[in-house]
Structure formats: structure tokens, C-alpha cells
Simulated scan of single mutants.
Amino acid sequence: MNFKTPSLLGHTPPVLEIPAHQHWYRVQRTTARKDSVRHKGYVLAPPGGLAGRFDLADEATAYLADNPETALYESLFRREARSCHWIRIEQRALLTFETHSPLRLVDLRGLETHFPVLQSMRYETSQAFARACRQQGLHGVLYASAQHASHSCVCLFMDGIDKTRKVTTEALVQPGTGLLLKAVVNAARGSQVPILKE
């Protein structure tokens, strides 16, 4: 295979091949919106919104985390959150995806020390880098979670999404009982973000 790893601010990060049978976790809405992209169990934001760090203008992307709590910190219990409403939790599920083929990912973990832009809210630089990675045939970007220290997240492009399969779906609020999934309790406790019912 002959491709050049895109550079980020003059630095060429490594490309890793992640073996098959790895589990990744995602929190998403249980009901798709009218403009959502539904693909292989994913409910994705439509392309073009460019609201995420590694979003592409012309292709949907999927963000996943290395464990359930990290997925929850990244989606519902972010550090800037002052509260999380019960309805938002009820409308979402925790999904587990497994890779069935190796993934070629550019690895940005550790670079945020030298390039704080990787964890800033200014996404133009990281989105341009994601576009270059996609053009080079990579499956996605591996990066450090800005919400959960020492944990990792991945943004998969469509080719990477196609190398995964959905394994489980767990409602964040258990139907009939109103009990919260244990990972939600852990994330709410760890973040100290109150869950509001009113």
C-alpha cells in the first residue's frame, strides 16, 4: 500500500492498523430524525453540518469511544454541561460495535500536548485534516478524549463504519422500571452533572 500520511500543522502522525474484533461504544438517539443517515445500526448526523471535530462536508461520520463511560462523557456529560435532562437520556441508547476487519487509523493521541487546537472548539484545522485522511484512504482518526482523561475515541469515515457490526443496544433508561443503565450512573457521578426530571 502506498499512501502518504497527511500532516497536521507540519507534524506527520503515525498510522496504526487496529486488528479486528475490537469493541467500540456509542451513545445515539433511539429514533432517527428525518434527515439522519441510518447505516448498519448507526443513526448519524447528515453530512455538511460540520458540527463535530472530524466531520466531513460530503460524508457522514461516526464517533465512538473505547468504553461506555467515555461514550457518555463525550455525548451527555461533557465538562461544560451544567445539567442533563432526563428526557435526553430516555431518548438515547448505548450501542456496542465490533470491528470485523482491521482499521487503518491515523493516531493523534498525545499530540494535543503540543497542539491544543486538537481539543479546542475551533474545528476548521481538524476537519481539514480529516478530509486529507479520507482522501488518502484511511478509515478514520484515533484521538484522545477531551472529556475522559487517559481514554480514546475514534471518528470513522464510511469505509471504517462498513468494517464494523452492531453487537448490542442498551436503553439508557430501562423500559418499565425507569432504572438507569449502570454506565449512566457512573458517568453522572463522575462528572457531577445533575440529571433533571423537571
Rank of each mutant, 00 (worst) to 15 (best):
T168V: 02
Y123A: 05
L72G: 04
E90C: 15
H139I: 01
A149Q: 15
R131N: 09
L94V: 10
L142Y: 13
P14R: 12
R82I: 04
C153G: 12
E90V: 02
P14C: 01
T12P: 00
A81Y: 05
H114W: 08
H11S: 03
Y143K: 03
S7I: 03
V173R: 11
W86V: 09
L64G: 04
T5S: 11
V173I: 15
T169S: 15
F3V: 11
F157M: 08
G41L: 10
E198F: 07
V173T: 12
M158N: 07
A188N: 11
S120P: 05
Y73M: 15
T96W: 06
Y42C: 02
P68L: 00
V154K: 01
F115N: 02
A183H: 09
L76V: 02
G178Q: 03
V27P: 02
T70H: 04
R33V: 05
G190Q: 13
L111Q: 08
S120D: 10
M158Q: 15
R88H: 14
D58N: 13
L103A: 07
Q22E: 14
S120R: 10
V185D: 13
G178S: 06
M1H: 12
L118A: 08
F54E: 01
H114T: 12
D55Y: 07
L56F: 11
L179K: 13
G137H: 10
L196V: 14
D55K: 03
V106T: 11
R189L: 10
P46C: 03
D159Q: 15
E69A: 13
L138A: 08
E98P: 00
S101V: 00
R78Q: 14
T168G: 03
G110C: 09
T99C: 04
E198T: 11
G137T: 06
E124P: 00
